[in-house]
Every structure is written in structure tokens, then in C-alpha cells.
């Protein structure tokens, strides 16, 4: 019962925050992906960095259970699937999480995204044996690995570097990148007035 209560509390918080950072608005997502307004990218980088700092820092202090980590396997299909997700993300302006939250905010197109998503997931369920047979789901570089070796974790490290220290260093690097990233990377369209 506690876990269901946590699911409700964390799920609600995640939904509210995704909406308030603009990730549920296809215009905000589109402006990030066509490089005209990178504020959402800065938000995401900062969030990952802060998450890393707190998680690995907490692990080092013994406050965060290393056993809660859940590392996914690396295989060729991860990259191919990433390319597909990126394509659909650019077209629709939604990814699975933000599409679901956007539907909750009242966006009607998001319900069509979800319907398409259910069909796409079903298509994968049916075609899964082929991907497996082609070997595209076979682990590469050790499969479920972290970049360093995290003390006490059930996952191997790609390198022998201390995984918690590396995690904090990468977290800081992502935060620095969030600050360094310009708000706009694309030249102004001809004839467009500068913003503000």
C-alpha cells in the first residue's frame, strides 16, 4: 500500500513539474529541437546533473540505497530505438511521459499521440522475436554497465574508475553545460525581429 501511495505522490509531482517546465507543450519542445530556444535543454541538463549529485553524494554518505539503482542494458537496438524515438518526438512534440501528462492538461492531440503509441508498442510486441533473432538486442560493451564502477552496485563498470566519484564529476559537468549552453543556437531567420 505504501508503494501505491508513493506512486501517486511521485507521479503527481512528476506530472506537475513536466507541465511547468514546458515539456508538455509541443511548441516548447519544437523550439528546443530546432535550436531556437534551448531553455528546456538547459532545464533537462540541470535536472540530470542535480539528480546525479544527490544520488551519488547520498550513496557516499550511506543515505541512499545503492540497490535502488536500475541500469538498462546497452545493445545496438538502443541506438536504433533512440533514432526512432527522436524522429517521432520531433514530429509530434511529445515523448511517452510528456504525451501522457499533456493529455491530462487538456491537449487533444496528445490523446492521438497516446493512441498511436499504444499501437506502436503493440507492433513492437509482435515483432520483438525478429529483433531478438537478428541479434540487435544482444548486449554490447558488457550490457548493463555504468561508466565507472559504483561501489556496492550489482552492475559492472565500463571502466575501473570509482563510479560514485565519476557520477558526481559528470553531474557537475552537466550542470556546467546547462549554464554554458546559449539560449539560442540557430541564426535568426531573415526578416525576423529579435525577441524582446
Amino acid at each position: 500500500m505504501t508503494t501505491i501511495l508513493l506512486a501517486i505522490v511521485i507521479g503527481l509531482a512528476f506530472g506537475v513539474v513536466l507541465d511547468r517546465i514546458g515539456a508538455t507543450n509541443p511548441t516548447v519542445v519544437g523550439k528546443m529541437l530546432n535550436l531556437t530556444n534551448l531553455n528546456l535543454a538547459k532545464t533537462i541538463l540541470l535536472a540530470i546533473g542535480i539528480g546525479s549529485l544527490l544520488m551519488f553524494g547520498g550513496q557516499m554518505l550511506g543515505l541512499v540505497d545503492v540497490g535502488h539503482m536500475s541500469v538498462k542494458s546497452a545493445y545496438i537496438g538502443v541506438f536504433i530505438g533512440g533514432l526512432m524515438l527522436g524522429t517521432g518526438w520531433a514530429v509530434a512534440g511529445y515523448c511517452p511521459g510528456t504525451g501522457v501528462v499533456a493529455a491530462g492538461t487538456g491537449r487533444k492531440d496528445a490523446w492521438f499521440f497516446i493512441a498511436g503509441g499504444l499501437l506502436g508498442a503493440a507492433a513492437y510486441m509482435v515483432t520483438y522475436p525478429s529483433w531478438k533473432a537478428w541479434g540487435l538486442l544482444d548486449a554490447v560493451a558488457g550490457g548493463k554497465v555504468t561508466l565507472g564502477t559504483v561501489p556496492g552496485a550489482k552492475y559492472d563498470g565500463l571502466t575501473a574508475l570509482p563510479g560514485d566519484v565519476l557520477g558526481i564529476a559528470l553531474g557537475l559537468a552537466l550542470i556546467a553545460l546547462a549554464f554554458a549552453l546559449p539560449t539560442r543556437m540557430s541564426p535568426k531567420a531573415p526578416g525576423m525581429l529579435p525577441a524582446e
Binding site: 533537462i44 535536472a47 540530470i48 539528480g51 538498462k72 542494458s73 545493445y75 537496438g77 538502443v78 541506438f79 536504433i80 530505438g81 533512440g82 533514432l83 526512432m84 524515438l85 527522436g86 524522429t87 517521432g88 518526438w89 514530429v91 509530434a92 512534440g93 511529445y94 515523448c95 511517452p96 511521459g97 510528456t98 504525451g99 492531440d109 496528445a110 492521438f112 499521440f113 497516446i114 493512441a115 498511436g116 503509441g117 499504444l118 499501437l119 506502436g120 508498442a121 507492433a123 513492437y124 510486441m125 520483438y128 529483433w131
Partner: peptide, 24 residues
């Protein structure tokens, strides 16, 4: 939006995760 959803979820399941699980 429908077509995008199809490609996104097919890709996410092939990859074993999405923007939340894999990226973040």
C-alpha cells in the same frame, strides 16, 4: 501526433526505455 506516437513507442520499446527511463 498519431504517427509520431507510433514511432516513439515502437522506438522506445526497441531501445528498452524512453526520455524518462533512458535519458533522464
Amino acid at each position: 501526433a498519431f504517427a509520431g506516437g507510433f514511432i516513439v513507442l515502437y522506438g522506445a520499446r526497441l531501445a528498452g526505455g524512453c526520455t524518462s527511463g533512458h535519458m533522464m
